[in-house]
Each structure stands twice: as C-alpha cells, then as structure tokens.
Nucleic acid binder design. Structure first.
Lengths: 189, 189
DNA sequence: GGAATCATTTGTCATTTGGCAAAAAGCAAT
DNA sequence: ATTGCTTTTTGCCAAATGACAAATGATTCC
C-alpha cells in the first residue's frame, strides 16, 4: 500500500484523511501466471496497481498473430482506461505473465472517489496523461530503429523484465520473430 | 472558427458566452511550408488548431536521421503539450509541411481560460487524452505489420495527406527508406 | 530418474529491406 | 522550350529478417 501512496503523491498532494479514504477502497487481487485482468470484447471493470509481478497488454493483429503492445511491471497502474471510462468493449487483453499481486478498485468505488475527493480527478488525469505519453514515447523508437537497437532499448526501459518472461512476448513487442530475437541476443553477448 | 467550435463541442458542452470568450482569445497564424510552429530545445508557447494545411512532429533519432513521428492535418489540435504545460524544453520539432492556417492561443490566454471557464479543463483533458490514445493506436501497428500494410494503413488514417507532402516524410513515418516506399507503391498499383 | 511438454536456439533458404548511385520525372523560373 | 533544382524511381548488391523445421535446453509431472 505504501508503494501506491508514494506513487499517487508524485502527481499531487492529498491529506491523510483523503489517502485513508482511497486506501479503504482497495482490495488485493492475486493473479496466477497467464490469467487475465481484463479481456478483449468485455468492458474493463477494475483499475489495478501492480504490487508484484508483470502484466502485459496484447491483441491480435490482421494476420491473427498475438502482439504484445506493452508491459506493465511493478508500481504502475494497469487499466484499459478507454474501456473502463466509457463502458465500451475493449479490444485488448490485459494478462498476468507472472504470478501477480495487484491493488484493485472496483468501478463503483473508483467513480465515487473521483466525485468525493477534491483534486483526485486532477491527479488521476496527470497519471493517465503521463502513462499515455510514455506509451507513445516508448513505441515510437520501435518504428525508426533497427531490431538490435530496439532490443537494447527494451532492456533499458524494462530492466527487471527480461529474465522473468518468455522471449516470445519480447519478440512480438519488438515486432520481430523469436528466431531473430535469438540471433540478436547471440550477437550482443 | 466554426470548425474549432464544432471540434470543442464534440468533447463537452459550453454555453454561447463561454464559446465567445474562448473565440475572443484566438488569433490566426499563417505558416509557410517548412516553417516551424515549435522547435526542439525550446519551450512550446502556443496551442494551435489546424484550419488549413498539414503539419508534422519530427525528431532526430540515434543515427541523426530525421524521423516523422506523426502528421496533424485539418481540424486537429497541434501542440507539444508536454513542453507547453510543464515549461520544459521540447525534444521535437513541429513543422508546417504545407502552407498552413492555424488558430492559436498564447500560453497566457490558454491558462486564463482554463481557470476562468468551468468545465473547460475537463474538455481539454478529454481532447488531449483522446489525441494521445490515438497516437498510441496509430503507432502500434507500425511495429507489428509489414511495410506494405503500414503504407496502406497510413493511406486510410490520413486520406488527404499523401498527395500533398514529400514521400520522404511518409517513409520516415513508416520506418522505411524512400526507395522501399517507392517499390511498395509500385507493387500496389 | 525419465517422459512429456514447452521454451529457446540453430540451420537453411527465400524474401524483404537498406545503402548507394544513377536515371527519370516533376516543377519553377526564365 | 531550356535550364537548374528537387523529388521520385530504379538497379545493383549486401545485410537483415522471416518462415519453417530440427535440435537443444528447461521445466514439470509422474
């Protein structure tokens, strides 16, 4: 819980009473490896915060290949905001790719907090905007750099991920095949 | 101006008085082809709305190549929000790539409006969030699809752009060389 | 321990793309 | 029309990557 409070307070100021109220609405959700946090075709019902473990957002492209869009590791929010906010079906899966421990808010509680706590919506806005900007910044180089550079960037961006998940997920994140990734790893070492 | 009002009202409701106030703060800025709206290394000072013409956001990658990150055509906001909001130096150029006519707000006016008009900040936030989400959605397929598919997607996303700008910009947007783009275009037709 | 299963690496060959330079096409000014 | 300039296309070869299959390595389960 402390991790989550610290995370929030990076984006604005709240008093102890407000923090307590927010904390009181959280529950802990444990997900086993490969379980879904939310699914394509359904409406996202929860906001999560990763305490332990790694999740990913993935979808299926034109050719039916499973593409990992990004990873979400410890101390980050995990939510399909588009689906959650607008109550529309998601087009992506959010999946635990290791065993995970999450703090979660139900949609009802989340919305009540937004209406109850002055300034909370501004903080949430800042959190979401920053996360979106980060996604753009992280995906952009994937287009303009060669595969080796992309892999090295991946290692920098997610320093604690590579040894904990299958390489196939990394390959699809980087937009290359597993074999190519394997060759790149061989070349680097 | 009507275009801008229509654009705003897609994201929320404002009364005539509020709309008039917003309108009163706009000025028209004309940019010649190749002129910059904002520059890397400087702090963005304006929010713009494209009435006519096409702009792009670009930067220089590791190898010093100029990369087009995205295009912004008619009836869209153009601003480096990260730089504008936080008064930090931008790392990208925003450039007119055709002659352009923009509506612009100065930073001072923009901030005053945010404080004056109830609900305006919520609208702005929705606009910015949607734009960011769109950027993520548009850049993601650039990683996982082959170059021909990417080019076809580009044509769908920006149907009014291809004949108005140099192919070199499109190539760098797609993450391929000009020659490859040329070959792809040849294959398609 | 051994079998079954899954993940990763490697080999081979085909295809795509890049780098470079030259040719062709488009465009503006005269 | 001619010239000069920029953009786009093409040709050639090398390098990177993909597709597919096989081999190797890791892990799990009995």
């Amino acid at each position: 819980m402390k991790e989550f409070i610290d995370y929030i307070l990076q984006f604005g100021t709240l008093n102890q009473h407000q923090l307590d109220l927010i904390a009181s609405k959280t529950t802990v959700l444990e997900l086993k490896k490969d379980e879904y946090f939310s699914e394509a075709g359904k409406i996202a019902q929860q906001v999560g915060f990763v305490l332990d473990g790694i999740t990913r957002v993935c979808y299926y492209n034109n050719r039916g290949e499973e593409i990992t869009k990004y990873f979400i590791d410890e101390n980050n929010l995990v939510v399909d905001m588009e689906s959650f906010d607008n109550d529309i079906c998601s087009n992506a899966y959010v999946q635990a790719i290791t065993d995970c421990k999450l703090l979660v808010f139900s949609k009802k509680d989340w919305r009540e907090l937004l209406e109850t706590i002055i300034g909370w919506d501004a903080i949430v806005h800042r959190i979401i905007s920053k996360a979106l900007r980060q996604k753009v910044e992280r995906r952009s180089p994937l287009v303009s750099e060669d595969a080796t550079t992309r892999y090295l960037m991946f290692l920098k961006i997610y320093p604690n991920v590579i040894n904990r998940i299958p390489l196939s997920y990394v390959a699809s994140y980087l937009g290359i095949t597993q074999s190519s990734l394997s060759r790149i790893r061989k070349n680097i070492s």
